[in-house]
Simulated scan of single mutants.
Amino acid sequence: MQNDPTPPRATRRGSTVRRRIERVAVSPEGALRRSRDDALTTEEPLEIRVLGTDGVAHRVAVTMRTPGADFELAAGFLYGEGLIDGPDAVRAIRYCTEAEQLYNVVNVALAPGVPFDSSSLARNFYTTSSCGVCGKASIEAVMGPACARVAGGVTVDAETLVGLPARLREAQAVFERTGGLHAAAQFTPEGELVRVREDVGRHNAMDKLVGAALLAGELPLAEHVVLVSGRTSFELVQKAARAGAAVLAGVSAPSSLAVELAEQAGMTLAGFVREPGFNIYTGGERIASRVREKVGG
């Protein structure tokens, strides 16, 4: 697969922008206002297009995202939605230099012989930073492509798992400057960080992570732990299951449908992962502990 070099005629937006703000500090003596510079997370639209072997560009989705890892985001999104089956399906990913919104339009060129069914676009993809993919045409479309059930997979110590959020925060460079980003991270069973991706949208962060693993030829993720920085929604479980992740953990709560899907997929799903513990919703056999389990309330 080839990625075109950065076009020279435009300036790429960074992951943060600076803005002058007023900081208000409230005390018993009153409110003190000070002017200062602040870092804000950049949010811009990204249009994902697929170039079929017929040379026609098909608009697949528009997502509000934080610029950076755009090619990984496009690849991860297409893979998660079942529109491509692996890295060999992609011939090249490049920015559309003819678009008015340069760096906000990505073309994914399919490899020769890779079929693309444009009728599948009837699912009417439109993604936002807050809720992921919206406006799909049917319940069947929302459920997405079928995922193979995870068999086996990694085992992780409880003591290792509970320490992962702290390691994730240490690696979130943009979050430290803005406080406005979600993250998805890939860890070894021993707690070593493999990669982390950040975005204003939690689904985009997962797509970037899966896209990076896809393009590196590292799927499935059955031998790694995937951690997300917020609540675990159905779509995050779906994307993780599609990537073959055996263990998915979140620092906040999962939804009921997320738990049901994780159970169906044979995944281990943990929530509220933060010191000093966490909840196991499915697949507890992959969580090892050196202490005696307490049964009941």
Rank of each mutant, 00 (worst) to 15 (best):
P28I: 10
G30L: 02
G30N: 06
G30F: 01
G30Q: 00
A31M: 08
L32R: 15
R34Q: 13
S35D: 10
S35R: 12
R36F: 12
A39K: 02
L40A: 07
T41W: 05
E43P: 00
E43Y: 07
L46I: 08
L46G: 10
L46F: 01
L46E: 05
E47Q: 14
I48R: 05
R49A: 09
R49L: 15
R49G: 09
V50I: 10
V50K: 02
L51W: 03
L51H: 08
T53L: 00
T53G: 04
D54W: 14
D54Q: 08
G55V: 11
V56N: 07
V56R: 15
V56F: 09
A57F: 09
A57G: 09
H58L: 08
R59H: 12
V62W: 06
V62D: 13
V62L: 07
V62F: 12
T63F: 11
T63H: 08
T63G: 14
T63N: 11
R65K: 13
P67D: 13
G68M: 07
G68Y: 07
G68E: 05
A69P: 03
D70I: 15
F71T: 12
E72L: 01
L73D: 04
L73S: 10
L73M: 06
A74F: 03
A74Q: 03
A75S: 14
G76F: 05
L78T: 11
L78R: 09
G80P: 14
E81Y: 04
G82C: 14
G82H: 08
L83H: 13
D85W: 00
D85M: 05
D85N: 05
D85V: 12
G86R: 00
P87G: 02
D88A: 05
V90D: 02
V90H: 00
R91A: 15
A92H: 02
A92F: 00
I93A: 07
I93G: 07
R94H: 00
Y95L: 03
Y95N: 02
Y95K: 04
C96T: 12
C96K: 11
T97S: 14
E98M: 01
E100P: 08
Y103S: 04
Y103E: 03
N104M: 10
N104L: 11
V105K: 06
V106N: 06
V106M: 13
V106A: 07
N107W: 10
A109E: 12
A109H: 05
A109W: 01
L110K: 03
L110V: 08
L110A: 11
P112I: 03
P112F: 04
P115V: 09
P115I: 15
P115K: 12
P115H: 13
F116I: 11
D117F: 01
S118P: 14
S118L: 07
S118C: 07
S119N: 15
